[in-house]
């Protein structure tokens, strides 16, 4: 279905965009995919790849370098694995895998590289690039936990004290409602938001293999 016309799609505006398009020509470092399995690509070449660097395939799918071996590089794919085949070319992007963060990210849905997925346009405001792989702050640098966090579930709130910023494990068999408890806790923070003292909740969805 063709989407409705946007105001920015006047010919003049598009013409100016065309004039300002950059198509630089330069030597790029490349590698060839030798093996793909389980979302991990083994790539021959890329002798100067750095750990945690972003790589780009011909069809736009990105990967993160996880393994630097003597003659090959192991990279984790950040996209559909069935679109990447053996023999494809991979380029270095010279960027360490990082995500832009700032006040503008609150209320948005983003993928691991910070690209918005909710169709609400670019993320505005001042953004800082934070690396995806970095050491968590040690216990000395963490604030003490001294405010309670209500889950809204009577059974849990009455028996198990949970604090804001505390790490809590929800363990159980599959399809027993572990994610539902976490989502319910996030939804329950609405009352705090309405009081003017919001609890910032970040939901990180990690899918199952397959």
């Amino acid at each position: 279905m063709i989407q409705p016309i946007k105001a920015s799609e006047i010919s003049d505006v598009l013409f100016n965009q065309l004039k300002g398009v950059q198509t630089p020509l330069q030597f790029e470092e490349i590698g060839t995919v030798l093996q793909i399995s389980d979302g991990v690509a083994r790539i021959h070449g890329l002798n100067s790849a750095e750990a945690g660097e972003l790589l780009e395939f011909d069809n736009g799918i990105m990967a993160v370098v996880m393994n630097l071996e003597e003659d090959n590089v192991g990279a984790v794919l950040l996209g559909p694995t069935d679109q990447v085949k053996e023999g494809m070319t991979v380029r270095r992007t010279s960027r360490i895998a990082s995500i832009p963060v700032g006040e503008g990210v609150v209320g948005r849905v983003v993928d691991p590289l910070g690209n918005p997925l909710d169709g609400l346009g670019k993320i505005e405001g001042e953004l800082i690039d934070m690396p995806l792989e970095r050491k968590a702050p040690g216990v000395i640098f963490r604030q003490p936990v001294n405010e309670p966090l209500q889950t809204g579930l009577k059974a849990i709130d009455s028996m198990i004290p949970i604090g804001r910023g505390q790490r809590e494990l929800i363990i159980g068999d599959r399809q027993t409602g572990k994610t539902a408890i976490a989502i319910d806790t996030i939804i329950n923070q609405r009352s705090e938001f309405e009081k003017g003292k919001p609890v910032y909740c970040i939901y990180v969805a990690v899918g199952q293999k397959g």
Partner: peptide
């Protein structure tokens, strides 16, 4: 044009 690990895609 590709030589060694470098590629120039023109």
């Amino acid at each position: 044009f590709t030589v060694d690990d470098l590629m120039l895609d023109a």
